[in-house]
């Protein structure tokens, strides 16, 4: 698909419109509800545990840069972790294989600690670029867990086959680990080796749940409505295909979306 046709444009307008509408109504002060996401309540616990043991926290924001939305979602989570860490006075280490992400993660850390009123914590937190190779970065990160006596480890963002190198490495180092990714092929490995896992789409709902910030809450509610729309569309399509046969032009849903 090179350029959007009107069908895609319509879908885009519906999905984006629902999100923006809900953000608008949330900002006007409407109370919105989000169900608890199991993995996230554990963040406070993990930060607290780390403070008790005296080691820093480690955050890894995935293997991708900003062209991947999961990295955008990870930014919101790092902010929350920073704010929680500011309460306990923990410092944070961030590792990455992407040079372009070094200044961005630094910026997030500085801004979040400053917002939480502990700018000095940002000074002894650090972002480490380990290697441009993904696998070496994974091993380097697990090495860091041992060297720096990290006791809690957060893995949020996009992951590829290296996921298990991070999470099993953390397991060996004895860290408490919370992971979240929407790369579904990697979730079984996180499930097998992390304490809590934020699965697939939950990653995108995380920031909203954590901050209770109206914009994000509205966005999640809008996404839910979009999902409902898509679900109904699919059900209508299934009914259409059953009644009129798949590939039949009378099956309007199918012929509308096929291009």
């Amino acid at each position: 698909m090179d350029n959007a046709n009107w069908q895609v444009l319509l879908l885009m307008v519906v999905f984006a419109g629902l999100v923006l509408w809900k953000i608008g109504s949330a900002r006007k002060g409407r109370q919105l509800y989000i169900r608890p996401i199991p993995g996230l309540n554990a963040i406070e616990e993990a930060v607290g545990r780390s403070a008790e043991l005296g080691g820093p926290l480690l955050f890894h924001g995935g293997i991708a840069d900003f062209t991947n939305v999961q990295t955008l979602a990870a930014v919101g989570i790092l902010e929350h972790i920073c704010k929680t860490a500011a309460k306990y006075g923990n410092r944070i280490l961030v590792t990455t294989a992407m040079p372009v992400m070094v200044p961005i993660w630094e910026d997030v850390i500085k801004a979040s600690f400053a917002a939480a009123g502990r700018p000095e914590l940002a000074n002894w937190s650090e972002v480490r670029f380990i290697s441009p190779a993904g696998d070496l970065t994974a091993l380097g990160t697990t090495q860091l867990l041992v060297d720096e006596k990290v006791s809690s480890c957060f893995l949020f963002g996009a992951y590829d086959y290296t996921s298990l190198l991070y999470s099993e490495g953390g397991q060996i180092a004895g860290c408490m680990q919370i992971a979240g990714t929407s790369d579904y092929y990697q979730i079984p490995f996180f499930v097998a080796s992390c304490d809590y896992v934020v699965m697939v789409e939950e990653l995108f709902a995380c920031s909203a749940y954590l901050t209770r910030e109206p914009t994000m809450l509205g966005s999640v509610v809008g996404q839910d409505l979009g999902k409902l729309f898509l679900l109904l569309l699919i059900l209508a399509g299934v009914i259409g295909a059953t009644l009129f046969g798949s590939g039949n032009p009378l099956n309007v849903y199918e012929s509308l979306l096929r291009f």
Binding site: L230, L233, I234, G237, V238, G240, A241, T242, L243, F244, G245, S246, N248, L250, N251, Y253, E254, L257, R258
Partner: peptide
């Protein structure tokens, strides 16, 4: 999305 429109039985038409 389009590929998910699967018929659940033989079509009448």
């Amino acid at each position: 999305v389009v590929d998910s429109f699967r018929p659940l039985g033989p079509s009448a038409i």
